[in-house]
């Protein structure tokens, strides 16, 4: 047996089935939350705000909101996926199975990325119901969605292995991802900030994601599109390196 595609698929399917069992929490809840953002920020407040970078405010915030959901869902999903078997003790089965580390990662991260990707698309469709939304570069938009979903699912996987309890598991999405996304230009363009805070913002990786993703819709961005792509790739490589290190050392998986 050179590869174990069945084993990889077993993990993938198990994780997808878990989301299907809890679809109210996995699908309905993030869609409702995002719709609330559209209603409150887009329709209620947006009607009093001028256009931003030439885009109506209601449409301007859509890429950022999709990113917000994509990031939080990818991290939450992937981290819970690997944390729960560690918590229940069922991880013994994956560790003792003839699957390689790469296959384990593809199974868990692939499933989490698939779920958040589907969610991102549902939210995109929902957004169309609220605002007029042109997509200038649909393929680039999809590429960004996929790249972000994979990158942040990898990040979530790392969180799920690092976390020792449920509190630590929640800390990263709540205290890191959400603030970074809110401060990452989801609801505003960076040029409305004082110069100092513009510079500080450039240290926030989410800025590059939101900016690049928004460019694929409207061809407007805070940072050049290639810089956005480059930074996203860089973050993905960083996560891959960390995952590689985790399995090499058995960090919190094997003693």
């Amino acid at each position: 047996m050179k590869m174990n595609p069945r084993g990889m698929y077993a993990i993938y399917r198990f994780e997808i089935a878990r989301a299907a069992r809890t679809w109210l929490q996995s699908v309905v809840s993030p869609v409702v939350t995002t719709s609330l953002y559209f209603v409150v920020f887009g329709a209620a407040i947006g009607s009093r705000v001028e256009q931003v970078q030439g885009i109506p405010y209601g449409a301007f915030i859509v890429p950022g909101l999709i990113m917000l959901m994509l990031l939080t869902q990818s991290v939450t999903n992937a981290s819970f996926g690997i944390f729960f078997p560690r918590f229940t003790g069922n991880i013994y089965e994956v560790l003792s199975a003839p699957v390689s580390y790469l296959e384990v990662v593809i199974g868990y991260v692939g499933a989490a990325a698939t779920k958040s990707l589907i969610l991102g698309l549902i939210i995109l469709i929902t957004a169309h119901l609220f605002v007029d939304l042109p997509i200038q570069h649909p393929f680039l938009m999809l590429f960004f969605l996929v790249l972000t979903a994979i990158t942040f699912s990898l990040f979530g996987f790392i969180v799920g292995i690092w976390a020792q309890d449920f509190e630590q598991l929640q800390i990263v999405p709540l205290l890191l991802i959400i603030p970074l996304t809110f401060l990452g230009g989801t609801f505003y363009s960076l040029d409305v900030l004082p110069e100092f805070w513009q510079t500080v913002s450039l240290f926030n990786p989410v800025v590059y994601l939101v900016s690049g993703f928004r460019w694929s819709f409207f061809e407007v961005s805070d940072v050049p599109i290639l810089v956005s792509l480059g930074m996203t790739f860089l973050f993905m490589l960083l996560c891959l390196a960390l995952v590689w290190w985790i399995f090499r050392t058995g960090y919190r998986l094997k003693s």
Partner: peptide, 14 residues
């Protein structure tokens, strides 16, 4: 049923 099926395929068996 789901869990025994999972175990079998995880170990690479059809």
């Amino acid at each position: 049923w789901a869990t025994v099926n999972f175990s079998r395929t995880l170990f690479g068996k059809p």
